[in-house]
């Protein structure tokens, strides 16, 4: 047993050294997988722990993720307690010093943007609130670009020989966003000041960017599933002050939105909560475009 173990150990150490030229990136959510791919290009080997069809609050700290974290050189997540139910287990069980808090390989995107929704007090009777603020920071391109800048610096520090490549990729990303902003103007103008009902308090950064007014949530409190009582209250609210659109994420149950839409005649839109195919070219731009176009099209 002892001989076998040490043999395996040596082989594995060797195999590790062989693949040292690429950075292994563990992304908690697909948007960060997409960003790491945009900046890192083919010098990074990216894996995403979740998909756009999963609620990032409720992920299982499953064995495959521990195995991935064990091999990671770099960890990129939303942070702000979004992954509090599972990421700490992955960090503990993988015992990978590179991705532990405080090291260069530990990167929480929400550390680098201005957070919205910081609660005045921590009280769980208010639902699942995050003390650091709303963790869904990726829903605004401005946040994404801020994170991109810091990420470029961080990746350059970890892999100095690729600094120029990362900076070029970053420049390209910024330029493509600037181009897209112009292209999106008609949709952006159409959405301005529109009142929306959302499923979860998820889109605050997007709302700020597009100047959308969030007038209600389908969830009675953050993280709690919609109740019939709360939905009937929303019907009353909508009778007095009708919203323009009901928005829910594709991973949400569609029934509450459908019910409210049927009762009030308000159009609804299902949008992916994040990048669906992060391996695709321009995945981030494509996702923002999908969200904006879906919302703009749905509004009558």
């Amino acid at each position: 047993m002892k001989i076998n173990l040490s043999l395996i150990f040596c082989l594995l150490l060797l195999s590790q050294q062989a693949s040292a030229s690429t950075l292994s990136v563990f992304a908690c959510e697909p948007e960060w997988a997409a960003l790491a791919t945009e900046i890192g290009g083919n010098t990074v080997d990216v894996t995403s722990a979740t998909t756009s069809m999963q609620d990032p609050h409720q992920i299982q700290a499953r064995p495959s993720l521990i195995a991935k974290m064990r091999q990671a050189d770099f960890l990129i997540c939303s942070g702000a307690e979004l992954e509090v139910g599972w990421l700490p287990v992955l960090l503990q069980k993988s015992s990978n010093p590179k991705t532990q808090p405080g090291n260069n390989g530990y990167f929480m995107a929400s550390d680098f943007v201005d957070m919205l929704d910081k609660p005045a007090k921590a009280d769980r009777s208010e639902g699942d609130v995050h003390m650091a603020g709303n963790p869904h920071v990726h829903t605004s391109p401005a946040n994404m670009l801020r994170v991109a800048t810091v990420l470029t610096e961080r990746l350059s520090a970890l892999s100095p020989e690729n600094k120029t490549l990362y900076e070029n990729n970053h420049q390209h990303l910024v330029q493509s966003f600037a181009d897209a902003m112009v292209k999106w103007q008609p949709a952006i103008q159409k959405l301005k000041n529109k009142k929306i009902v959302v499923y979860h308090h998820y889109w605050v950064y997007l709302e700020k960017w597009l100047q959308l007014q969030q007038v209600a949530t389908l969830e009675p409190k953050p993280g709690l599933p919609p109740t019939s009582n709360h939905l009937s209250q929303l019907v009353n609210q909508m009778t007095n002050d009708k919203a323009d659109l009901i928005v829910y994420a594709t991973y949400n149950d569609s029934k509450p939105a459908e019910w409210l839409a049927a009762k009030t005649g308000i159009p609804m839109a299902a949008v992916p909560a994040t990048v669906e195919d992060w391996k695709a070219d321009n995945a981030l731009l494509h996702w923002y475009e999908t969200v904006i176009n879906t919302l703009a099209k749905a509004i009558v």
């Binding site: 680098f112 201005d114 957070m115 670009l145 801020r146 810091v150 910024v174 966003f177 112009v182």
Partner: peptide, 24 residues
């Protein structure tokens, strides 16, 4: 305009960097 705004955003980055970290 947007290019300018993005440029401005990038310049802010260094300033905002560690502001949220103490809270975690």
């Amino acid at each position: 305009q947007y290019e300018k705004r993005i440029e401005a955003l990038e310049n802010q980055n260094t300033a905002t960097q560690n502001t949220n970290q103490a809270q975690t």
